[in-house]
Nucleic acid binder design. Structure first.
Length: 565
RNA sequence: GCGCCAAUAGCUCAGUAGGAUAGAGCAACUGCCUUCUAAGCAGUAGGUCAGGGGUUCGAAUCCCUUUUGGCGUGCCA
């Protein structure tokens, strides 16, 4: 688990501190300053491999021009036994460092020895984290929004796993409450319309109008005829729910499987009701004095945000609200199942709830440490066709479903495309999406992987096997495209770390596209076949290690790495 | 009204614990395959980082403000 970025930065910082001490004893710089500064990777390669800002940061305190400080530090630097061969002073006072051959070599050795584990880091070791995502309403098919939330949650979970966390993926099934009741009433109405004729049975005011509801009713009608027609309406609704809910859940599982998403747990809301856990949780809040009764309903006091943010827990009719159930559900995650951290991936249409809900969970009433509960709020997907926004309504049932989408677009392209930064709106162009051409960067990356595969096969056919690093002369890889390629390889563990820290798995998309770009550049600039044996072996090894890292990256994203294209 | 998210090239987007001349892909234009996959590479062109203030040696990045867009502000979930 070598992070060569951390190592390089740490070394530079230590080297500069040592240089400062020497400069002080040589009377080049004033004493008594705690030298610090940033170490970054410059955009321009002409600015070195790493750049330190220590001299500029010290300018004010030392009352000296930054360049003078830089010169003094540079004069006292001892680079022996470091990963750097030289440094230079540039611009307003940057100290730019250049990597030495042994750094490049060590990176390649790390990729070789870690193999499919290259990219892992240990920031999450010993912590159990749950990622809850999709959690689509089982009353209907999953939407484009679920397509986004699906990859986001799944790749976030993958990234956290790479970062050392013990990760659990969870789907919360809302199989209780008002929506389910309405779901049953809607099927019941469609069923009765089949029995009596469309115009002879009223459809509920706020019912689900989608075709899937009609299909469920038709399924029941075909199987059992009109045998439910003379049942009492409530009993009929309940019976239909008992049939339709498992049916829909099975369908969701199937579609998510197709999307390469598999959950560790499908958590049923109904179990919280049946076990009495919701009642118990609310009773606890009541006992501890965090509630009051108004208009016959039981209210939860919001201690943090004020009385106007108080929430109803139990309606006057005795039913618990979603708010009470959500509290119970999260109490279950933290208390009963003891997750160290919980991440909920929610759509932007729930962000208001997220703010209030977090304040409730972390208030004295529930006492959860705020650091243990996080929300990833993803912005909406805007569907565009022919340059115009397509309005999608779940009510009228005219939404494009996840499964429809997968009929048109490859899973690879879909997963890659939807894995964008969570907090920006995602524009999804239907016209563009059906095209499976180079428009989509996923093919660019896969092409690099396939190219390497065929390269390795072709050379193996000529008797050139890939040799272990121990037999490779790494110093031969001195071409600019080779060095840039190795530097990009070294970055994966750092990218995983940042993606896990920021809950932004789309970093991996950008990382692997850049890696592919650098490989293509190398491929065009450097020949392998026909080169002298040492050079051929070194470049072949480089290609193989690039393939490993592309594969590792795509694996995080849940995208296939084809051998041929 | 209040709250959350956003605004960067013609289009889609990177770039935020403040760093050097703001990047990539697509679209446009010019080159590169008798040699390892041209789904590729090299190059040209394209910008008042929404507007205005402020902090700083230094701001796309931090603060204030204005404008525009999305979402929220239920005894729905």
């Amino acid at each position: 688990m070598a992070n060569f970025i951390d190592i390089a930065k740490f070394q530079i910082d230590a080297l500069l501190r040592a240089a400062y001490d020497k400069a002080v004893s040589d009377k080049l710089l004033p004493d008594g300053f705690d030298l610090t500064g940033g170490v970054e990777i410059p955009r321009e390669t002409s600015h070195g491999d790493y750049a330190a800002t220590h001299a500029m940061a010290a300018a004010r305190a030392l009352k000296m021009p930054p360049r003078k400080i830089a010169e003094a530090l540079a004069a006292c630097l001892v680079l022996n036994d470091s990963y750097f061969s030289r440094c230079e002073i540039a611009g307003p006072g940057f100290i730019n460092f250049y990597l030495s051959d042994n750094w490049y070599r060590d990176v390649l050795c790390a990729v070789e020895s870690e193999g499919q584990d290259f990219g892992r880091c240990d920031i999450g070791v010993g912590q159990r984290v749950m990622v809850e995502f999709v959690s689509a309403n089982p009353t209907g098919p999953m939407t484009i929004g679920n397509a986004r939330g699906g990859v986001l949650g799944d790749t976030l979970a993958a990234v956290l796993d790479m970062a050392g966390y013990s990760v659990s993926r969870e789907f919360y099934v809302n199989d209780a409450g008002n929506q389910v009741e309405l779901f049953g009433r809607s099927i019941e109405a469609r069923y009765m319309q089949l029995c009596l004729g469309e115009d002879n049975y009223a459809f509920p005011e706020n019912g689900y109008h989608g075709d899937d509801i009609r299909a469920l009713a038709a399924l029941l009608f075909e199987r059992d005829g009109n045998k439910y027609a003379d049942w009492e309406q409530d009993a009929r609704s309940r019976a239909f729910v008992a049939f339709a809910l498992p049916h829909n859940i099975a369908l969701m599982k199937q579609h998510l499987e197709r999307y390469r998403i598999r959950f560790d747990t499908w958590f049923l809301e109904s179990t919280l009701h049946e076990s009495g856990y919701v009642a118990e949780t609310v009773a606890l809040l009541e006992t501890n004095g965090y509630t009051y009764v108004k208009d016959g309903a039981l209210w939860l006091k919001n201690m943090e945000l004020g009385a106007d943010k108080d929430e109803v827990l139990r309606r006057a009719n005795g039913f618990y609200t979603y708010y009470a159930v959500d509290i119970a559900y999260h109490r279950n995650k933290f208390v009963e199942r003891a997750f160290d951290r919980v991440i909920d991936v929610w759509g932007a249409d729930h962000h208001g709830h997220a703010i209030r809900f977090k304040s409730t969970m972390t208030s004295p009433a529930l006492g959860i440490n705020p650091e243990r509960l996080d929300f990833v709020i993803m912005q909406m997907v805007r569907l565009v066709r022919d340059g115009e926004t397509v309005k999608v309504s779940k009510r009228t049932g005219k939404a494009l479903t996840l499964n429809d989408l997968l009929d048109e677009i490859s899973v690879d392209a879909c997963r890659f495309f939807f894995n964008a930064k969570p907090d920006t709106h995602l524009e999804f162009d239907l016209g563009l999406a059906v095209r499976q051409d180079s428009e989509n960067p996923v093919y660019y990356v896969q092409y690099a992987h396939a190219r390497i595969a065929s390269l390795l096969a072709a050379l193996k056919g000529e008797g050139h096997d890939v040799l272990p690093m121990a037999q490779i002369d790494g110093a031969l890889l001195s071409h600019e495209t080779e060095r840039e390629l190795v530097k990009q390889l070294s970055l994966l563990p750092e990218e995983v770390k940042l993606a896990a820290r920021d809950y932004d798995p789309s970093r991996i998309n950008r990382y692997v596209v850049e890696l592919a770009a650098r490989f293509h550049r190398f491929y065009n600039a450097c020949r392998i076949k026909g080169e002298a044996p040492d050079m051929l072996a070194a470049r072949l090894k480089l290609a193989e290690l690039v393939q490993t890292v592309i594969r590792n990256s795509l694996s995080i994203l849940g995208v296939t790495a084809p051998e041929k294209m």
